[in-house]
Simulated scan of single mutants.
Amino acid sequence: MERIPSVETVGLVESEPVTNRSVERACALLSAFTPEQPRLTLGALAQAAGLPKPTAHRIVTTLVATGFMTQAEDGAYGLGFRLLSLGAIVRENLDVVRACAAAMERLARATGETVILGEADWAAREVTIVHRVDSSHTLSVLSPIGRRSAIPPGALGKALLIGLAEAEAEAVIAALPLSAETDRTHTDPFALVAEIRRFRALGYVVEEGEYLADVSGVAAPVRLEGARPVAALGLVGPSTRLQGEIERLGALVRDTAAELSA
């Protein structure tokens, strides 16, 4: 007679994570692309995903056939057109984007500068740009949607830190690699801790050439729920144009972020 599994056994089986190795490998290959490396050779893809080259080739061939990757004449691979529509669906339906989009439009009209929204990934200690409203100026700063960066450098990362309790912010900073993006990037954790304390009192942070040379920005944390900020609202532009305007722009971003958090 067939044995009927117990409730405990069923619960145990259902609670175990169910994964598919081929899907995991395909995701690893797709995740190898970055804004800095939008085209990769098969060898580079295999290395990034930790796969043997024949295995990577088999999966990449399927991804190309289904439109999730493309292959150029020189043999290099890139992300495919199918991801464009999927990415747009994701971006437009993110809770944080829906909550902040209208306020970002108002802030961009009031200042004429590029307004960006970065969503926090606290587990990875990263921030990803999920929405942007472009500047009305011919000379503006391009911040690609989907770009990931460490917390910090940059205004978005520092804004997330001032949204934490002091002890937690110091613990996060102590665990960060703090690699230099420019010659002005903070690489001394003690100096960064002191700066975060000072900016926490202001309610916004300032960045001047720390992530990109000759680019300045201001940002403030956004809380939709929970103790930690879920995102950072930022405004960026050429340093020459923002010079002398930082305090005014910082106050605008801080007040907008506070309204969204409320």
Rank of each mutant, 00 (worst) to 15 (best):
T66L: 04
R98Y: 05
H131P: 06
A49C: 11
N20F: 14
G146T: 12
P5N: 03
L212G: 00
L176F: 00
T182Q: 08
A49N: 10
T240M: 14
R254G: 02
G87K: 00
A219C: 10
T182F: 07
A251G: 00
R223H: 14
V7Y: 01
G75P: 13
A150M: 13
A262E: 14
R82M: 13
G226F: 12
R109F: 02
L176P: 01
P52C: 13
S22E: 13
P52I: 11
A220Y: 01
L139W: 08
V218H: 09
L83N: 07
L94A: 05
A120M: 12
R91P: 06
D214R: 12
L51Y: 05
V97L: 10
A150G: 11
E113K: 10
T240R: 13
I162G: 03
S15E: 13
P177I: 11
D255L: 01
A101P: 00
A251Q: 05
A167L: 12
A88G: 08
L212Q: 14
T62I: 06
P38V: 05
Q37S: 15
R198Q: 15
L202S: 13
V13W: 05
T41Q: 09
E36Q: 12
A72F: 08
I196F: 11
A120H: 04
S85W: 15
P238D: 04
G146W: 08
D255H: 02
E2C: 00
D74W: 07
G237Y: 10
A257P: 02
F33H: 09
A169T: 04
H57G: 11
I246Y: 04
A65W: 00
A171K: 11
L235T: 07
A175H: 11
L176M: 14
V64T: 09
E24V: 00
V133Y: 01
V133A: 03
T138G: 15
A28Y: 00
E170G: 12
H131G: 07
Q243H: 14
R198Y: 12
L40V: 02
I145T: 14
T182N: 09
S216G: 15
V115L: 04
R200A: 15
R241Q: 13
A99P: 10
A191E: 15
L249W: 02
L260Q: 03
R109V: 06
E168W: 09
G87E: 08
V236W: 07
G11H: 10
E168F: 04
I59L: 15
T70Q: 13
E168L: 13
A48D: 06
L260F: 02
E24S: 06
R254H: 04
A171M: 08
L142H: 13
G118N: 07
E105G: 01
F68C: 06
R198V: 14
R58V: 05
V253M: 01
L192P: 05
A48S: 15
T66G: 07
I196W: 11
E195S: 10
L29K: 08
P177M: 08
P153Q: 06
T114C: 09
R58I: 06
R248K: 10
